[in-house]
Design a protein around this nucleic acid. Sequence first.
RNA 1: GGCGCCGUACCCAAGUGGCUAAGGGGGAGGUCUGCAAAACCUCUAUUCGCCGGUUCGAAUCCGGCCGGCGCCUCCA
Length: 489
Amino acid sequence: MALVIYNTLTRKKEEFVPLKPGRVHIYVCGPTVYGHPHIGHAKSYISFDAVVRYFRYLGYRVKYVQNITDVGHLTDDADEGEDKILKKAREEKLDPMQVAEYYTWSYFDDMQALGVIRPDISPRATGHIIEQIELIKVLLKKGYAYEVNGNVYYDVTKFKDYGKLSGRKLDELMAGARVEVNPEKRHPADFALWKRAEPGHLMRWPSPWGEGYPGWHIECSTMSMKYLGETFDIHGGGIENVFPHHECEIAQSEAATGKPFVRYWMHNNMVTVNGTKMGKSLGNFITIKEALKKYTPHTLRYFVLSSHYRSALDFSDEALTAAEKGIDKLLATVKNLLKALGNAGEVSDFTPPFSPEEFRKRFEEAMNDDFNTPRAIAVLFDLSRELNAYLNRAEALHKPFLEEVNVLYQQLGGEVLGLIPKDLKVDTGAELQGSIEKIIQITIDIRNELRKEKMFKLADRIRDRLSEIGIILIDKPEGTTYEFKETES
RNA sequence: GGCGCCGUACCCAAGUGGCUAAGGGGGAGGUCUGCAAAACCUCUAUUCGCCGGUUCGAAUCCGGCCGGCGCCUCCA
């Protein structure tokens, strides 16, 4: 089955055909860096991380660009109000670029913690002022924009396709306008490409229209086309950006180049907390840093990927606790596998108890269907049940077979979903832990002597106390083993 | 007011015209165990918000209603 993607532009699932064979050019709207990233960012970027990882798994050469917005987004009204970064800078008495830099790194740190692979290019808006001015000049020259008092606006009535992504019509936009009409605009839906800097405005650049700063949609058009070409494969972002942000991007880009801008538009759904939207300006958001105090990165990743990217995800402690149990179960199985791999050998006339390739196929079918990660995860659980059953019942284990299964976990659960760490600890003989392990072994030996003497109360106390510090004893007919409780990666 | 999405078991969540409605969590029982833990096995929705309609056949398509959410203002 071919890879299909739900395209917001056509509202249908469409087979993915790259513009250049074997390559994927993808742009995803990045964060505005004026605060610590929250779990909504986590959902968005983990989802697209899985998309990019899957393309790479399929063998595509991917060029993944994600902007860092360090200027330009305003606090309230489209054209009035104060730049969010400037606001933060004033509140914290910092240079705006200090604010942007600080939160850019906060973002990178959190993404790394969540196992999100860095985009190939993370262009900053302030680093592309010249290119943005050039694009605005083209739009003016082609008659799609007009200047008033050092402000440049895009004339939406000139672009006949305006509304094709979001399904909106200009007259409807007028009727529903909640914002006071800016008298400088010819049409209420016109949007700013360049804003004149008032005296005292800290972030300002010279331009043909005087000192000012770019509007909020122009950076994405500029930077995506600069690095990916005038037409590229995929543009992703949050569903709330369909209108106006992405609609405006299309208007700017296609007006300037006369070519289709993006072939597949992908939009991920929102995170809600207790059923209501989480937004930066609502102040009810949970930062990734807060979430990571309570849950492991793998739990958060698993939680995000266990629902589809186009579904809304409700964040609650119950759901996260269930997710934690789920991912622990998956990781426990992989650990069992790694342990078994240690004592496995060659079994003559071996008959495979199940077909690993069958599971790979099912996994790929799920991912090919618009990146259906919940279904893909379900396949991994089905595989786990088969594997555990084999590990339990087989008296002699066939090493090549276990290795094949291990590769499957590493590729599907590891490389693609980022749920299974490459260096998963198998709780045996790590050098650093050598002496600790000897001590545990001594404790176990003594406890087993107690058990032989039927002094179970004391034996259980030893097990309970060890359990309190995260060492779990497992009594089997062949003897006692132990493992460290999974707390991190 | 306009546009759009969603409602599947106790919870989370796939499935969107036809074999037994995935998977995870939780719960019940069992194998194993001195007891546990882990793992495995069995059970836990004759039914998919409600009401009509289309169809040989619908959770899936159409219409209406009820409920929840999002966008139309910066937001992932």
